[in-house]
């Protein structure tokens, strides 16, 4: 079998570069088998091998810890992610439907406005959002605007904020839905389908690839989002996995030597589910990107 030189070159670059890309993960897997004492005593090389490998760190994450906080973090992350995925897909799909299929005055203006505001840096709204949450009317001990902590440090922070509302997703769905011929709607109309049925039984199945793309990217964004818990919550019961890493590191440091292997294992625990999701749904990524109306 003869290999073309350009293909050989491609194999070498992609393999070597790809190994560099996943190297930090390899390091994480290796380091997670250390105990705290052995880790502190080892002069770390690029590929640290534990003399006495242990799965104690994994066991702590899966449920051996006394306070079960990691389980709480995990379920917070999971529920939050599910919630965001459901609502982001729903808002993206319905918004996309409105802007692709309905006609009303001011539609284009409204759409451009919403899209333009999606370009505003998130940090502009971050501090005002904090104040808004703290002054939320009649919540968390507020008499109208003042007095308590508002909805800060409560589940409402995750319900309202974060990636649960997806304007960019509406844009993607709009682009994708405009490729579906309008005659399909009319045929359904003539066959007696209600609007509800048209939206959910006829248009929805055709948008599943782009919705899968939106769902996966939202799942990633929410799962990895450390900002919302970091800025808007403080109690232990509300933390998610990424926010917990920063916490564990500060708690561990105050007790002396930081428990790096445990932190690394937790990091692996965060990364692994997203890797699996990407691995199984990667065709939607390329499809989604190609569908996003960016074709030449």
């Amino acid at each position: 079998m003869k290999v073309k030189p350009i293909n050989l070159f491609g194999h070498i670059i992609l393999l070597v570069g790809g190994l560099v890309m996943i190297y930090p993960l390899i390091f994480m897997v290796l380091a997670s088998t250390f105990t705290k004492q052995e880790y502190a005593a080892t002069v770390l090389g690029p590929f640290p091998i534990a003399i006495k490998p242990t799965f104690a760190n994994f066991r702590i994450i899966v449920g051996a810890a006394k306070d079960h906080l990691v389980q709480i973090y995990f379920f917070n992350s999971l529920f939050r992610t599910l919630y965001s995925v459901v609502f982001a897909s729903l808002t993206a799909f319905l918004g996309g439907f409105v802007f692709a299929r309905l006609r009303f005055r001011g539609k284009d203006g409204l759409f451009l406005f919403m899209l333009a505001t999606a370009m505003i840096p998130g940090v502009v709204a971050l501090i005002p959002t904090y104040i808004e949450y703290a002054r939320w009317p009649y919540a968390g001990g507020n008499n109208i605007f003042m007095g308590g902590k508002g909805i800060l440090d409560s589940w409402w922070v995750y319900m309202i904020g974060g990636p649960a509302l997806n304007i960019m997703g509406a844009f993607l769905v709009k682009q994708s839905m405009e490729k579906v011929p309008i005659e399909l709607d009319e045929a359904a109309k003539i066959d007696g389908a209600s609007t509800f049925r048209l939206i959910f039984q006829i248009l929805l199945p055709l948008q599943l690839p782009i919705l899968a793309f939106i769902a996966i990217t939202t799942a990633q964004a929410t799962w990895n989002d450390w900002g919302t818990p970091f800025f808007f919550t403080s109690s232990d019961k509300l933390q998610t996995l990424p926010a917990a890493i920063t916490r564990i590191s500060s708690i561990a440091t105050s007790a002396g030597v930081p428990d790096y292997p445990l932190m690394i294992t937790l990091g692996l625990g965060i990364t692994f589910p997203m890797l699996l999701i990407f691995f199984f749904f990667q065709r939607f990524f390329v499809q989604g990107l190609a569908n996003a109306g960016l074709k030449g």
Partner: peptide, 17 residues
């Protein structure tokens, strides 16, 4: 997949590394 792995990882976890 290999090249895309860093994109899906968590910022807090990988900056720790």
């Amino acid at each position: 997949t290999m090249w895309y792995v860093p994109v899906v990882t968590s910022v807090v976890a990988t900056t720790q590394i």
